[in-house]
């Protein structure tokens, strides 16, 4: 029975995630721990597998369209994987209640970042090894861009990786704004490149959890299958459901989960 409940939850998370451009982990970990009483570290291991699967599946589309900047992605991955390694080790060592508390704080950050009005990006000078280009599918124009502020980008990438390995989320909520607003990448390229990094980062964390026996088939198999189905359904539904409505639903859900996770941190 639990099998089908898990598949159902994962399908919904996959649909919401793919339609709103957020990873599933931010929803999956709270749902597994709060409603199915999955231990938090097992939930994180399960979620990391789902994040890897989602990233690989969407990357197939992004790479084919040429949005991904592999050179920049690989450079920033040095920082995200180191962060994920540190985060994964931390997750193994600290108490479950501490993880609940940090998770609640990150959920609040996600809420704030969704409400924030985006500042105009600062374009960087084109023409370096990390510069990129792609064809805009809406206009058919070739978009060429440069990449700036690499040291700061690396620092934020480390933090994003850390959050990923510690909490079992993708960390796109940190990476996309950093690449778009700080480093000057167009949003499309930033989303695709962030997605590429998420796969490698989450895999680094997942390898630690897998080795520790925290990726249990009874949770990971149904959720991985469900999230793949959901991620396929999401783009097909996107014309039929208003993104505005979906966004509100997501925000309310995040707010409720933030409160619940905070309560768990205080042992309530």
């Amino acid at each position: 029975m639990t099998f089908f409940v898990l598949v159902g939850i994962a399908v919904i998370v996959g649909v919401l995630g793919s339609m709103l451009g957020v990873g599933g982990g931010i929803l999956l970990v709270p749902l597994l721990t709060l409603f199915l009483d999955v231990p938090i570290k097992t939930a994180i291991g399960t979620s990391l597998v789902c994040v890897v699967v989602t990233s690989s599946a969407s990357q197939i589309v992004y790479v084919a369209r040429g949005f991904t900047n592999s050179r920049l992605g690989m450079t920033l991955e040095v920082a995200t994987t180191l962060g994920a390694l540190a985060g994964g080790i931390t997750a193994i060592l600290v108490s479950g209640r501490a993880i609940f508390g940090i998770f609640a704080a990150v959920l609040v950050y996600v809420l704030i970042s969704m409400e924030r009005k985006p500042a105009p990006p600062r374009p960087a000078a084109p023409g370096s090894a990390l510069a990129g280009s792609f064809t805009d599918p809406d206009t058919g124009d070739e978009v060429t861009y440069g990449v700036g502020h690499l040291p700061a980008g690396l620092a934020f990438s480390f933090v994003a990786g850390n959050v990923s390995g510690l909490l079992g989320v993708g960390g796109g909520v940190i990476k996309v704004p950093v690449m778009n607003l700080l480093m000057g990448m167009p949003l499309r390229a930033a989303i695709a490149t962030s997605n590429l990094m998420i796969g490698v980062t989450a895999a680094t964390g997942a390898l630690i959890f897998f080795g520790r026996g925290l990726v249990e088939p009874r949770y990971a198999v149904p959720t991985a299958l469900g999230i793949l189905v959901g991620a396929q359904l999401g783009p097909r539904l996107s014309g039929k459901v208003s993104t505005g409505v979906l966004r509100r639903v997501f925000e309310v859900l995040i707010a409720v989960l933030a409160v619940q996770m905070a309560l768990k941190a205080f042992g309530v």
Binding site: R71, V78, A129, A203, T204, G205, L207, I208
Partner: peptide
Amino acid sequence: WRFVAVTSVVLAVMLVSIAVGAA
């Protein structure tokens, strides 16, 4: 070669995480 080096560092970190998991 520069990106061979960069990518190799990423691979090395992933290998460390496999080792940490197995330890």
